[in-house]
Structure formats: C-alpha cells, structure tokens
C-alpha cells in the first residue's frame, strides 16, 4: 500500500486549508440536522396539540395506529426471510462455488430503488385485479425490506467470525450447526439492532404504501382496515399543501422523534457487543 506520507518529500506539520475544508464539511452536515429540526420545530410546535388530538383529519393518532399495524405485519416476514437468507449466504458450504456470486447479488438487490419495486408490485397486482389494502401493502413492504434485513443480518453473522467458523469447521461441525449454535447466539444483540433498524425503515417509508394502496386515488379503500394512512404516507400526502403545513411539520417532527428513539435503542443494543468485540 503506497503511503504518500512516507515518500521522500518531508510531511508538512500543519495544513490549515485542508483542515478547514474537512471541518467545514463536518460542521455543515451537523448544521443541516439542526436547521431541519429547527425549521420543523418553528413551524410544527404551535400545531403539536392539533397533531396529537384524538380526532379530526389533522390528527396523527390514527396514522400512528396504521404505522404500528404495518410494522407488526411487515417486520416478522422481512426478519425471518432476511435472517435465513443471511444464514445461507454466510457459509460458503451452503451455496458452494456460487457463494461469492450470491453475496454480490444480494448487495445488488439492495440497490434497486424502493419506488421501482413498489411500482412493479402495483403492476403485478393490477394485472391480476388485486387492489391491496394496508394489509397487502404491508406484506409487499416486507419484501421491499428483505434485502436490507439480509444485508444487516449477514453483517451481524460475519463480523469478526472467521476464526470461530474455522475452529468449528475444523472440529467437523456442519454449516447450519455453526450458524445456529455458534454464530447466532453471538450475534443476538446485533440482530436485535438490525430488527429495529428495519422497523425504522418501515415506519419512515412512504413510497411503497403510497403506490400500492393508492394514497392519492380519490375515495381509495387502501387505508382499510385502519381507516388511516401510516404516518409517513399521511405526511407525504399533505406535504405539498400550504394550508395544513404547520400540522404536517408537527407530524414530521413526531415521526422523526419516533425514529430517533428507535435508532438510539438499536445503537445502545449493538454497542456493548461491538465494544466487547473490539476488546478482543
């Protein structure tokens, strides 16, 4: 590996311009979150009471129930298939010579935009005359999130696990025994963190449900059985309207806080394991 610092030119001790540029990049990003939250607070705080009110079209309570509904439906299938797919991709003996291609293909699937997957699902549903409600859309949402879950679970199962796998393989353990009895217990905290991250994606995602359940179709029955759109879709449908901007900003703030809390829990769950692994 070429190290420019070790070339025959003496390294200068301090470079003010690059230091300022790097610092500016970091603080610009930090400032962005403050600006976004500040803007949402300034516009949404006076309307928080309306957003948290139990009734009325502005209320975020129904959308919160709808969000919980789709999360409860979409998370288990995404998690189950994602973890099993990661188990398959994590051991070279399960797919043999195709293992490398499998991992590469898994990462390619994750780069297909959500909006195209949802559009393809809409076309397939329209072709067979199916009009998905929230329930159906939640299951498609699970499919949309399977590549992410697989990627996170694969990382949880393979991070710093090579030596454990080598030892277990040398002792004659079959691949699934290694995954289930050695790697899964070790990756338990990271997997829980992965579930929470996928849950935040489901909670924050609007495009899939909006497309599949027809959020902008007049008199759409897509919000059944909850009779309200999930919070992200509720915000998206009202985001371009100046009349209800304050309530929309308050709802967006509520959604952001919900996701921050969940992400914080995910990081706290993953932190002790990461720390103990770094100690090794």
């Amino acid at each position: 590996m070429a190290i420019d610092a070790l070339s025959d030119k003496p390294a200068r001790m301090f470079r003010p311009l690059p230091a300022v540029v790097f610092a500016a990049c970091a603080w610009l990003l930090c400032g962005s979150v403050i600006v976004i939250v500040g803007w949402l607070l300034a516009n949404g705080l006076p309307k928080v009471v309306s957003a948290l009110g139990p009734r009325g079209p502005e209320s975020a309570i129904g959308p919160l129930f709808a969000t919980a509904y789709i999360t409860v439906l979409a998370l288990p299938p995404a998690a189950a298939v994602g973890v099993f797919a990661a188990m398959g991709a994590s051991d070279v003996r399960i797919f043999g010579a195709a293992a490398g291609s499998m991992r590469s293909a898994l990462s390619l699937v994750g780069s297909v935009p959500t909006v195209i997957v949802a559009y393809a699902a809409l076309l397939a549903a329209a072709a067979v005359g199916w009009h998905p409600s929230l329930t159906g859309a939640a299951f498609v949402f699970a499919i949309v999130n399977m590549p992410l879950m697989t990627g996170l679970a694969l990382r949880a199962l393979t991070t710093r696990a090579a030596k454990l796998r080598e030892v277990a393989t040398a002792l004659g353990a079959p691949p699934m025994y290694i995954v289930i009895s050695v790697l899964l217990p070790r990756a338990r905290m990271r997997l829980r963190s992965a579930y929470i991250i996928v849950a935040t994606q489901i909670i924050g995602g609007a495009a899939t449900i909006a497309i599949l359940a027809g959020a902008n179709v007049p008199a759409s029955r897509g919000a059944l059985p909850i009779h309200a759109w999930p919070l992200a879709v509720h915000i998206w449908t009202r985001g371009s309207s100046a009349d209800v901007y304050g309530v929309t900003a308050a709802s967006a703030l509520l959604l952001a806080v919900l996701i921050w809390v969940l992400q914080g829990i995910a990081q706290l769950r993953a932190a002790p394991e990461s720390a103990s692994q770094e100690d090794l």
């Binding site: 924050g204 371009s240 967006a252």
Partner: peptide
Amino acid sequence: LVGALHAVPAVGYGVAAA
C-alpha cells in the same frame, strides 16, 4: 448529529424543503 441526520425520514426532509 450526523447519526441523527441519517435517521431523519425522507418525508422529514421533504416537509422541511417543501
């Protein structure tokens, strides 16, 4: 702070920018 920015949902960015 960047972790918090990363977690802002797309609709959050959309509402602020719109």
